[in-house]
Design a protein around this nucleic acid. Sequence first.
RNA 1: GGAGGGGUACCCGAGUUGGCCAAAGGGGGCAGACUGUAAAUCUGCUGGCACUGCCUUCGAAGGUUCGAAUCCUUCCCCCUCCA
Length: 411
Amino acid sequence: MPNVYDILKERGYIEQATHEEEIRELLEQEKVTFYIGFDPTANSLHVGHFVQIMVMMHMQKAGHRPIALFGGGTGMIGDPSGRTDLRKMLTKEQIENNVHSFKKQFSNFINFDQDKAIMVNNADWLANLNYIEFIRDIGKFFSVNRMLTAECFKNRLEKGLSFLEFNYMLMQSYDYLELYKRYHCKLQMGGNDQWSNIISGVDLVRRVEKANVYGLTFKLLTTSEGKKMGKTESGAIWLDSEKTSPYDFYQYWRNIEDPDVENCLALLTFLPMEEVKRLGALQDQQINQAKEILAYEVTTLVHGQKEAEKAQKAAQALFGDITEDSTAIPTTILEKAKFATGIDILTLLTETGLISSNGEGRRLIQQGGIYLNDEKVEDFFLMITLDSFVDDKLMLRKGKKVYHQVKIKEN
RNA sequence: GGAGGGGUACCCGAGUUGGCCAAAGGGGGCAGACUGUAAAUCUGCUGGCACUGCCUUCGAAGGUUCGAAUCCUUCCCCCUCCA
């Protein structure tokens, strides 16, 4: 069995490591308990988290024990890393809520049975810390001079950094110490933006416990142009099917740029590397095959095979010529009565959420961007009645690829 | 606490001798052309509405004025320097 470190390296996850050789040996020799932290800043995980979850899965497969740490405590502070401004403060209730959602989503990916993996919430030990004790016992190990030179604070020093956020690094370091004590956790992993926080945790454990522990960071999921992936104009790509439908999720990967295909296949699927390389090397139109596979594979991992197939069929139906039932396409169900007298196109578009104002709708129609059952809509005041429906269904399209289906409900 | 500089649309940012300001320019986004459901490029649009007009907006609330993003008052917030 190949060393999991080599696997991670080959697939391109690894960015920096505190001690490359030692970590490799450690993973070779023993069952390692490691942790990755997730701050509950929203009520669902998103694609950015998924890379880290993939690593956890790889690690668990190789027999190691993951700890998923949820930042119920650190979330109260807010990580300034990679931020240019203060995070929006969340209430305690919001955070608890988010932690709850995270836990649910996690169990879809990681096996927590029989202590094969652990979930913890750092609020358990951070929330009731005594300030004086904390700064005496832990704070004394941190040099402000050195912290100020840390990459994660640099741009904040120009823009402003509150003392609250400045403490984040201590909290995360303390987490590592706590997990080392509780579970003998010896490795912390995280996105590369966490490097400063991770090495300061490694330092803290070494100083307090005189123990060698390690840190490892992964590449952030970015496009070939260095932009963060998983974000669209309408927000992040979520793993929760309520927030990002499996169809939209599938389409996101189906539409990524050519140069990103190979990287995404390596990071977000379990396909063997030869296959990844083969698909990534495809040229011109051929590479569309690779994108389909990518979209299918990632959607399967996140939403299950059934949803992935539905999304794929829906996409093929819409973009190919096959007319097929496409239940995965985003759908709005409206009452039959509404169409009895007819409803104008702008109102209908608003109801489906395709447009956010009538002005936007007018603009789209003017520019020829709205289609009704594959026919271009030319008239702002087009009235839609039951005549427009085929089999109680009607297909709206915005631009080239945003489809939305309207179905009728008997009253 | 003192001194100074600011808060403009999704973001950055012009505009402060009061009207020509729904507010330059850029970015982002959306749409069109070209394509491969790609990229690059080019074009149009980008506050709301009953759209040749009206309404709301330039940190908040008041005031001056025929008329205010622009002037005055109070308040809130941010930054820099001093303590």
